[in-house]
């Protein structure tokens, strides 16, 4: 089934597929970030991947990656349970990483993208409310990046970065 979907993607978006890693544990396809929205809409509406299980950010020395895990809950047009299908997007620009949002395609991406923005500083263009959800606006650095120094902070040290009351 997954081979057929890969074949379908290759026919429909020949220029969007960067690679299909063979050694991946789950079926994976790497998509160019410019075409992620078209491919997402195609996978949701025509293949039936109506459920985005989770999204994750990855920090590698040469690039950032964003991973999408898709499942099908047995809706039309394919009424069988499919998945997981992993979609990857390479974000090559390490200084100003950004890619298009999919939060209007799968609503579950809304908070996942906020979280990835919070921890990696990856900007999702077109996200309706992109802000930090775990740390506060003004927290120094992006905690899950590899170049973030994981040290402890004192209360006083972080005091100037905090939003003023009552907006914490």
């Amino acid at each position: 089934m997954m081979e057929e979907i890969f074949q379908l993607l290759k026919e429909k978006f020949p220029e969007a597929i960067v690679e299909i890693p063979e050694e991946a544990k789950d079926p994976t396809v790497v998509i160019r970030k410019e075409q992620i929205r078209e491919v997402s809409l195609f996978l949701r509406d025509e293949v039936g991947f109506n459920y985005l299980s989770f999204m994750a950010g990855v920090d590698l020395p040469e690039r950032f990656e964003v991973v999408y895990y898709l499942y099908s809950m047995g809706r039309e047009p394919i009424s069988s349970n499919l998945g997981p299908l992993a979609i990857k997007v390479y974000v090559e620009d390490k200084t100003n990483p950004s890619l298009p949002t999919v939060s209007d395609i799968w609503p579950s991406a809304f908070q996942q993208e906020q979280e990835i923005y919070d921890f990696f500083g990856i900007v999702f263009e077109g996200h309706p409310d992109l802000r930090r959800i775990f740390m506060w606006e003004g927290f120094p650095g992006w905690p899950l990046r590899k170049d973030f120094e994981n040290r402890t902070f004192t209360f006083k040290e972080l005091e100037p970065t905090r939003p003023k009351a009552p907006y914490w």
Partner: peptide, 17 residues
């Protein structure tokens, strides 16, 4: 003292505040 959470996110002991 912050316990096992030797990290950026955790206050190292509530007696700091």
């Amino acid at each position: 003292s912050g316990g096992i959470f030797n990290s950026y996110a955790v206050l190292q002991g509530v007696d700091e505040i």
